[in-house]
Every structure is written in C-alpha cells, then in structure tokens.
Design a protein around this nucleic acid. Structure first.
Lengths: 146, 146
DNA sequence: CTAAATAGACAAGCAGATTGACGAGTTATA
DNA sequence: TATAACTCGTCAATCTGCTTGTCTATTTAG
C-alpha cells in the first residue's frame, strides 16, 4: 500500500482533517466570523510589510478579491490599514490586537490538532516525518488550493 | 523545526501542490471542463451504488449542491443516471466511459506528481513515510476542505 | 518630461453553494 | 393495514466569494 495514489489520498485526507480541526477550534475559541482562508491572509499580514496587492499575490487571487477580504477583516476588527511610508498610493496592512489574538488561537489549535499524531508516532519518528516532508514541500507561500 | 505549526504548514503546502498538479495534468490530458472537486465526486461514484444523496454526504455539501454537480457532470458526459432497482424515488449514479477515462487520467496524474517525491526520498524511506501517514490519516471519505 | 506601470476603488456579473418548500415514494408504528 | 414520519430528488430564490472591466492617483522608467 505504498503507491502514489494511496500517498495522495493520505496527504489530502490529512490536510483536510487539519484544516477542519483548526477551523473548529478557532471558532470555539470565540472567532466564529473567521473562515479557513482568513488564516492564510493572517499569515502574510503578520509577517509585516504587506499591502493589499502583496496579499493578493500571496493568496493567489485578484487584488480586487484581496481588497474585499481586507475590507471584511477591517470591518470585523482584525486588520488595520496604515499609510505607507514611501508610497502615497499604497496602504500598509497590520493586525489589530484582536487579529493577533486570533492568530495565537490558530497556533494553539494547530498544536492541539497535531499533538495526538506526534504521540501516536513517538517523538523520534515524528521528527523524521517532518524532515521528510520538509524535503518534499515546495518553497514559497501556502495558499488555499481548491 | 519539528513543531506542530511547521508540520501543519508542510502538510497544507504538500496537499495544495498535489491538488494543483493533478488538476493541471488532467486538464492537459483533455479534460479541461473538470475541476478538482469533481475528483472527489468521481471517487464516490466509481465505488458504485451511489445516489445523489450519498454523494452529498460524501462531499459534505447539501443534496441540492450535489444534484447541481451531478447535473453538470451528466451534461458534460461523465456521469449517467440509472433507475434504482429497489427504490423508485432514487437514481443510481454511474460513470460513463468518458468518466472512467477521466478517472484514469487523474490516477496517472497522481502518479506523475508523486514520482519525484518518491525518487527524492528513496524507495525505503518513501514506504516508511506512507506507513507513518497511514497511521495518522482518518478513516472514511476524503473531502474538499475549504 | 512624458509614457508605462502600479495601488487601490467602484461596478457588474458569474459560479457554486445555501435555505426553503414541494410531490412522489418508502419505512415505521399504532 | 392505515397512516404518520421520513427520504429522494427537484424547483426556486438567494447569498457569498470571486471574476472581469474600468477608472483615478501616484510612482517609475526611458
């Protein structure tokens, strides 16, 4: 049972479960107005220096779509727009304290979701697994895929 | 770098790349009117005995949404509706020859996408990786997650 | 100094999903 | 066995997230 199809199915199943568990946990921690895709936006914005166009690039959507998401996140109190120091056209995006709290909640959720797997494999084998995946994963930003 | 967050990011990145590569390859093999989500439908229908309601359950959407997808796949020539032998309300779904061809194309695409990873790790380590993932992956159907 | 490119906003439209209501057929129960 | 409750599939309306297209203000390149 180590053929490519099985492997594909496993990776897909694992990532689906991961997204689902993180989303559920974040909701239960009081952030019910966030969807999984928002996590990818938070990842880019928290890294700093992002404009709406940067965010669009990171998410793999049009800048109009990114602008709509930013507008939504601003309205919900997770994101702020600041003037850009060197470009009068652009606005720098940043997380509010609520935005940071949601990010921490997602981090915690990821830990909770992964913990049983780590335990099931044992620390040594888990580390080896992470090393293998590191070899395989593409560089660059993580984006929603379908 | 073997913390849960890193692991989550790796699994997400890997599955995103996988979906993208399979979709691109299937399109290039002439099935340009199929989207990634259709693959999950084909998986259930090819297993046999599926009604529209079964498909909805499998995909995690409402039966109306599943019915719309079935209608689309019938119109495009991938799926057929047959009378159900024991229930006059229901229709049994099945793949047409074109549907089976698309399924084989997706299988082939998965193999092509995974092959370089298998090569990068080596056969033994790859088998071990699959064994580890098998331990972690949940049982049951694979669904689009977000 | 002018031409091309870029950031973001406004508008309209589309695709894929949702909720709600319904008739036809099936299953469970009194 | 009568009938109440449930299920399958459909029709209709609506919502949401994204797209394409257009525009102004500003920056960058030649």
């Amino acid at each position: 049972m180590d053929d490519p199809l099985t492997f594909s199915a496993l990776v897909l199943a694992l990532s689906g479960q991961l997204v689902q568990e993180i989303h559920t946990s974040v909701s239960q921690q009081g952030f019910e107005d966030l969807r999984p895709a928002h996590g990818f936006a938070f990842a880019r914005i928290s890294a700093g220096g992002a404009t709406t166009a940067d965010l669009a690039e990171h998410l793999g959507v049009t800048k109009q779509a990114a602008a709509q998401m930013v507008e939504e996140l601003v309205r919900k109190g997770y994101v702020e727009r600041h003037p850009h120091p060197h470009d009068a056209r652009a606005r720098l995006l940043g997380l509010t304290e609520t935005g940071w709290a949601a990010t921490r909640a997602a981090d915690q959720a990821a830990r909770t979701a992964v913990a049983p797997w780590r335990e099931a494999l044992g620390q040594a084998r888990f580390s080896e697994l992470v090393a293998d995946l590191t070899l395989l994963a593409p560089p660059g930003p993580i984006r929603p895929a379908w």
